[in-house]
Amino acid sequence: MSENILEVKDLVIHYETDEEVVEAVNDITFTLKKGQVMGLVGETGAGKTTTALGIMGLLPSKVGHVIQGSIKLEGEDLLRKSPREMRDVRGKRISMIFQDPMTALNPVKTVGDQIAEVVLLHNRCSKAEALKRAQEMLAMVGIVPERYKDYPHQFSGGMKQRIVIAIALACEPDLLIADEPTTALDVTIQAQILDMMRKLQKDHGTSMILITHDLGVVAEMCETVAVMYAGQLVEFGSLEEVFDNPKHPYTRALYQSIPSLDKDVERLHVIPGMVSDPSNLPPYCSFFERCDEKCDRCRDFEPWAVEVDPGHVVRCLQYTPEWNGGEK
């Protein structure tokens, strides 16, 4: 068995409607080692959630299509699996935590039933055993187990997210995808939830993809970082490489836009312009219009991924032999 839990290669995902084709994910490649936590960062619309749904096999039916590429979970290509086989993967081997805990739980079912459901789906056990497991899970995420009979509306937002996490971890998955798990929560609760997730991840050795746009969270929790922009992975590498030695102009610009306590800056750096329209991407670098390191050659090619250091991949022309030294 390989030491990589997940290998995503050349993945392209489009949303196709009658009017337009949205190129949500364009040719991304990354690997995740067992037990590792990878941060997937980027602004809204960069394709982070689409990537996650693609891995889960939960792209909106009829609209979302994987055009090419492969998604290998411990060497098995998930894209070749039948819907039935994928149902066995979801919840059991890969789980997902969604962004908004307020709407992620079924309002007319008790939280105990909702946790027990996933246990029953993937284990041979009785309803009573599943409910017992549900209570254990509640205790694990810091909720009084006796509350398994309560309905979601009787819990606060932070507690609902704990329940969502309990559902995701109930079958001890190999891979957990957390899609902005704390975005909908207030700051003090965010810290609690992240602490809990980190502890559970360490205890169980679960591999994790943490989708976020909070670079602080990434710095605290992740070992590797993938930066997405307009559906492309513009930079991928270890936390140290990407944070201390960012190579892509977009990653650098992102760091400049974080407020710093030790520097006295009047205004934060703003990346000018808007993200390219994913239904109308240019045939050249999609960051071109907003880049402050661009040169004329950038208009001629679409950049490809270059390994600048071992394990540190950047998709920018300035690291290719074609780069002509930034002449204007």
């Binding site: 889960m56 939960l58 149902r87 979801r90 789980s95 969604f98 993937h122 995701a168």
Partner: peptide
């Protein structure tokens, strides 16, 4: 189209059960 239907799919639930157990009552 609610989020909790997606949660049910993420659990590996079958479409039939999703329709009957999760969607219908709501």
């Amino acid at each position: 189209s609610e989020d909790y239907i997606r949660t049910a799919r993420a659990k590996g639930q079958t479409e039939g059960n999703i329709t009957y157990h999760h969607a219908l009552r709501n």
